[in-house]
Design a protein around this nucleic acid. Structure first.
Lengths: 156, 156
DNA sequence: GATGAAATTTTTATGCC
DNA sequence: GGCATAAAAATTTCATC
């Protein structure tokens, strides 16, 4: 799973790019004491290795019309394969994340909606999926921390 | 909250950048039928407006040493302010997201850890926070969908 | 095996229409 | 918003440690 460990320079580069993925190679290089070409070569290699999956934009959900968020816990009927759950849930533009979990709940789906009315509609659609026995929703009141980007793990 | 609605061109640009934030303005322009300078002006404006908060890198958690994930539900003693919760939870490098929620639980914290041993240690640290009465953890078995980037909301 | 300096190509950033 | 241009950055080449 860790074919080659990331050296401290790679980690530093990733931290800079996590903060600003459009920083120039020269800027990253300045932060980590490396020349622009050296940074580019390391970034290219991190992409080849799959450590870097891509680059994306961080957007303000509210500015895009998403004013409501919730965790929808789903209890499945009988045994449903993760592949089935995934295929179903993937089709929802409103689904942020979906995870199978331990415990009495089978699936936790994080949903974004325009408003309560929209959220209700999404939950109803989810509840109507053939493998869904029952749902339980928890509304997000306040998003205190949102840090989706994985950073190099702190040392043990 | 929506000072000016995003027109379809802005939405298209954001979708391209969500997929590849390092695409050149010319590439984005080709996808949305606009010249490179026109794209740049719109992107600059979207940043000024705060719709675009920044650019970041998508990394493979496993390649970085994160092999375990969990939802830790936290019950608070008495009444704790969101600011207090936030300040506490923010200091954890392992915290991906934290949200105050409706229902019997007060706070849902999404945690990433190197392994079960590390997760246990993080949960113990959280449980020892002064405002925490009790925690309940749910381990993520399989991450079916991970789509952190907010995209333009589908029309009503 | 990885780096830095220099040369070349491409992109970005601006002024103008 | 497009076009043209100057400035900056990315990318390639090449020599070095």
């Amino acid at each position: 799973m860790d074919p080659e460990r990331l050296d401290p320079l790679d980690q530093a580069i990733l931290r800079v790019l996590a903060d600003d993925a459009r920083a120039t190679f020269a800027q990253v290089g300045e932060a980590v004491s490396l020349s622009a070409p050296a940074v580019k070569r390391r970034v290219d290699r991190l992409r080849e290795r799959g450590v870097i999956r891509g680059f994306t934009v961080r957007l303000d959900p509210a500015a895009l019309g998403w004013h409501t968020e919730a965790f929808v816990e789903i209890f499945c009927q009988g045994s449903t394969s993760p592949a089935t759950m995934r295929a179903a849930v993937e089709r929802y533009a409103e689904v942020v994340s979906a995870s199978t979990v331990t415990g009495d709940v089978d699936l936790v789906v994080q949903v974004r909606a325009r408003d309560m009315r929209h959220l209700e509609e999404v939950v109803e659609r989810l509840a109507a999926e053939p493998f869904v026995a029952r749902t339980r929703s928890t509304i997000v009141l306040s998003a205190l921390v949102r840090r989706p980007e994985a950073l190099p793990a702190p040392d043990a």
